[in-house]
Amino acid sequence: MTSDSVQQDMFTVLHGQPAPVVTRWTYTATDPFAVTLAVRTRHDRWVEWLVGRDLVLEGLSRPTGDGDIRMSPQLVQGYDIVEIEIRSTDGRAVLEVDRDLLRHFVDSTAEMVAFGEESGRMDLDGMIERISQSCAE
């Protein structure tokens, strides 16, 4: 990763499954409002979801989300976790990730771009130019 991004792999429990799965959380300052949550599948493929960084922050302290991704802090058998529910037309999955590890990741993103300062980091002119160029092709 570069100095304008942070990545952290975490073991995650897929609800009801005995073996943990690996999730990869990535944040890039060039896309300051979003976090990429990737889940490694059995065949070493990664399935990715783009999640609002503010949703991840809120999920550390209270239930949040009303769309395809919902997060909620939980205490499960003595473990302090964040439960992440992912919904799609194919079904739903519930992941459980250690809350301290997720908090560490969120803190790392805030060191790069403070919460509330995201819009100042966006290059809107550059985005418009890239979109315009891709439409012209």
Score class of each variant (00 low, 15 high):
73 P>E: 00
28 T>W: 08
57 L>Y: 04
72 S>F: 04
4 D>P: 08
1 M>I: 08
34 A>V: 04
14 L>F: 14
23 T>G: 04
101 L>Q: 09
61 S>M: 01
32 P>L: 04
20 P>G: 12
71 M>G: 03
103 R>S: 14
97 V>T: 04
7 Q>L: 12
33 F>C: 11
82 V>M: 00
84 I>M: 12
48 E>W: 05
64 T>V: 11
68 D>W: 03
104 H>Y: 03
10 M>R: 10
47 V>F: 07
45 R>D: 15
64 T>I: 06
117 E>Y: 13
47 V>K: 10
59 G>N: 04
30 T>K: 13
18 P>M: 11
2 T>W: 12
127 M>H: 08
65 G>C: 06
27 Y>I: 06
105 F>W: 05
23 T>D: 02
125 D>Q: 10
110 A>L: 13
78 G>R: 00
88 S>A: 14
25 W>T: 04
21 V>Y: 08
43 H>Y: 09
16 G>Y: 14
18 P>W: 06
128 I>G: 04
46 W>R: 00
42 R>Y: 06
91 G>W: 00
92 R>C: 09
137 E>P: 10
47 V>D: 11
79 Y>Q: 14
120 G>E: 11
15 H>F: 07
19 A>G: 07
10 M>D: 11
5 S>C: 10
95 L>D: 00
27 Y>L: 06
26 T>K: 05
97 V>E: 01
78 G>N: 01
31 D>M: 04
101 L>F: 05
41 T>V: 04
125 D>K: 07
132 S>D: 08
54 D>N: 09
96 E>G: 06
8 Q>G: 06
4 D>T: 13
119 S>I: 14
130 R>T: 11
12 T>R: 02
24 R>Q: 14
33 F>A: 10
83 E>R: 13
57 L>S: 03
69 I>H: 02
76 V>R: 14
34 A>G: 08
34 A>H: 07
65 G>T: 03
122 M>F: 13
28 T>E: 12
30 T>N: 11
12 T>D: 02
22 V>I: 14
53 R>N: 02
67 G>F: 06
31 D>G: 02
123 D>W: 13
39 V>N: 05
59 G>F: 04
60 L>G: 10
49 W>T: 01
124 L>I: 15
82 V>T: 03
80 D>G: 01
88 S>L: 11
20 P>Q: 13
63 P>K: 02
82 V>A: 01
73 P>L: 00
66 D>I: 00
15 H>C: 07
105 F>N: 04
37 L>Q: 01
112 M>E: 09
103 R>Q: 14
7 Q>W: 06
126 G>M: 12
99 R>A: 11
22 V>D: 02
61 S>W: 01
74 Q>L: 07
58 E>H: 10
61 S>F: 01
